[in-house]
């Protein structure tokens, strides 16, 4: 087993939700994935195809009904970014970002230093004493990302993190996320509804189909890196978007 190459491997993963009054929901069947270390993989697909379910299973928040998951990290440490930022309203920006270190009792000087660097990287330094209610949606989500990175987990799972933001803020945060990703070298699994977002960010895009939730195709995004505003003008960008759109149907 090449435990060094793959961050996460799933084998024949399946998930069935038992319902009391209607038929069982087959949320996922036969999910086979090999996510490489440091890879940026997006997941797209129609609503209800099981994207969130897949992410939750990989994140250990739900148990699969069948199949198995192998993590490269023996402790399977990972960060999770939810669609709503889930910041604790009584803690300020820095305290929220520091929260995992408090919970895991890892408040060492070097961790604190890395936290400050991450806040800097996310452009949050000057807001570090602000309370969540004083922040815009985009800023909240940046805090939430820094929080997920604060304990240096190798894998970052993101479920539509920018779904509730306006297009401009979203584009801006996409660039910032890529910057953070290349600086930290994390593996990122990113669920989104936006085809353009998936193309812009990813090494590979996982296209899912519904009923039952399954993988339709995995599309490699061969756009050059580093990506920036010009990437969106690349003819290949439009081609890939068109291809993905047709796949989803």
């Amino acid at each position: 087993m090449e435990s060094t190459k793959y961050s996460v491997v799933t084998k024949n993963l399946g998930k069935v939700y038992k319902n009391l009054l209607k038929d069982d929901t087959v949320a996922l069947t036969d999910i086979n994935l090999e996510i490489e270390n440091g890879e940026f993989v997006s997941i797209i697909g129609p609503s209800g195809c099981g994207k969130s379910t897949l992410l939750k299973i990989i994140g250990g928040l739900e148990k699969p009904t069948s199949g198995e998951i192998i993590y490269s990290d023996p402790e399977n440490k990972l960060g999770f970014v939810f669609q709503d930022s889930v910041l604790l309203p009584w803690k300020n920006v820095r305290e929220n970002a520091e929260f995992p270190l408090v919970i895991q009792k890892k408040r060492s000087p070097e961790n604190e230093k890395r936290l400050d660097e991450l806040l800097e990287l996310a452009g949050l330094t000057e807001f570090s004493t602000a309370l969540p209610r004083e922040l815009s949606g985009g800023m909240k989500q940046r805090v939430s990302i820094v929080r997920a990175l604060s304990y240096d987990a190798p894998l970052l799972l993101m479920d539509e993190p920018f779904g509730a933001l306006d297009a401009l803020t979203r584009d801006h945060l996409n660039l910032q996320l890529l910057k953070i990703w290349s600086k930290t070298g994390k593996t990122i699994l990113f669920v989104t509804h936006s085809i353009e977002e998936a193309t812009f960010l990813s090494d590979r895009v996982l296209v899912m189909a519904t009923r039952p939730g399954r993988i339709r195709e995995i599309v490699t995004i061969d756009l050059p890196r580093p990506r920036n505003e010009d990437t969106r003008n690349n003819p290949r960008f439009a081609e890939l978007n068109k291809y993905l759109r047709e796949l989803i149907g």
Binding site: G59, L61, F82, D84, F99, P100, Y151
Partner: peptide, 12 residues
């Protein structure tokens, strides 16, 4: 929020 509990779970 459910996700607040999920966050705690992710953080073990």
């Amino acid at each position: 929020d459910d996700n607040a509990y999920n966050l705690m779970k992710v953080l073990k």
